[in-house]
């Protein structure tokens, strides 16, 4: 299973980029500002481009409608099916803004030279973290007990499902080794990990004792555990990172960046903007990173070191 996750990750990294998946529906004509002809492209990564496009389109239209003074008359949504394609789009300049969780954003910033500008309060949260949990009857009392056992992470590019828990365990001195088979025999001094590719998978794998431990977004832990939460025990909580991040491509007009920042920061004060934000994955607002983006995302960039081997570098 771990090998399957790595293969998927490799495909993500190596596949050529594209602006739009072939089955993406044709974008509707966005609102135009009188005289403005420029296009602002907002990018996202998803394996469901249709739904993603519909999610992002009102946001892109709203943004473009407010950027007429800087020459933007049209908003465009670009959905890539992998981060590697998004990196390529950003490098090519076909995507101006990329919005995602800290791990992917940190990845594209690292690979494409993009720059984080604002924090997005996705689903009403400004920050989030991960929990590492086990069955309460597993006999595991601490992370040290993970040796010789397997832990399930989520998707390879998940911030809370992979980056934060792996970094947390690795930073505590455990040696984590990727496996494909959850039933594989793990060396006593290793901690094996597999990708479940889904938080629900992770939860059930732990509950059904397919793996010894799992890591999921702390915000979803209780919901995922549901009525069986008593059967679980949280071994560790990771540090918090920004919930979602807006980054801009390298080389984007600073005036445009400034204008984008102004529009996004004021969006929650505008009734129309609030309406768009509500439909945009329940975004509460956009704000600046407390302490600056370099401080906030810099920490995430540091954590990338713990997953370098998984990123194929």
């Amino acid at each position: 299973m771990a090998r399957l996750g790595l293969a998927l990750l490799a495909a993500v990294l190596l596949a050529p980029g594209c602006q739009q998946t072939p089955n993406e529906p044709a974008p509707k004509e966005p609102a135009r500002t009188s005289g403005a002809t420029g296009v602002l492209s907002v990018g996202s990564v998803s394996l469901n481009p249709g739904r993603e496009y519909e999610t992002f389109r009102p946001f892109a239209d709203y943004l473009a409608s407010r950027l007429g003074e800087v020459g933007i008359g049209k908003g465009r949504v670009v959905v890539a099916d992998s981060l590697s394609k998004m990196v390529a789009d950003l490098q090519r300049g076909s995507v101006d803004l990329f919005i995602d969780s800290p791990f992917p954003v940190a990845f594209v910033c690292d690979r494409a030279g993009s720059r984080p500008i604002l924090r997005r309060w996705k689903r009403g949260s400004d920050v989030y973290h991960s929990v590492i949990f086990v069955r309460a009857d597993s006999g595991i009392a601490s992370a040290d007990d993970f040796r010789g056992r397997i832990i399930a992470f989520g998707e390879p590019f998940s911030t809370t499902g992979f980056l934060l828990p792996k970094a947390a365990l690795a930073s505590s001195g455990l040696r984590l080794v990727n496996y494909e088979d959850p039933a594989a025999t793990i060396q006593p001094d290793h901690v094996g990990y597999v990708f479940s590719n889904d938080a629900e998978n992770t939860m059930f794998w732990v509950l059904k004792k397919k793996v010894a431990a799992g890591a999921v977004n702390a915000d979803y832990f209780e919901a995922l555990a549901g009525s069986r939460i008593e059967e679980l025990r949280i071994i560790r909580r990771t540090e918090e990172v920004p919930r979602n991040v807006v980054c801009v491509r390298d080389g984007l007009d600073p005036e445009l960046i400034r204008a984008v920042e102004e529009v996004l920061l004021a969006m929650d004060e505008d009734p129309q903007g609030r309406s768009v934000l509500s439909g945009f994955e329940q975004t509460a607002r956009f704000d600046r990173f407390p302490g600056g983006s370099a401080d906030q995302l810099g920490r995430v960039m540091e954590l990338l070191a713990y997953v370098e081997e998984d990123l194929g570098r």
Partner: peptide, 8 residues
Amino acid sequence: LLEVRELR
């Protein structure tokens, strides 16, 4: 395989 996502 306990692929709940696939089941979903």
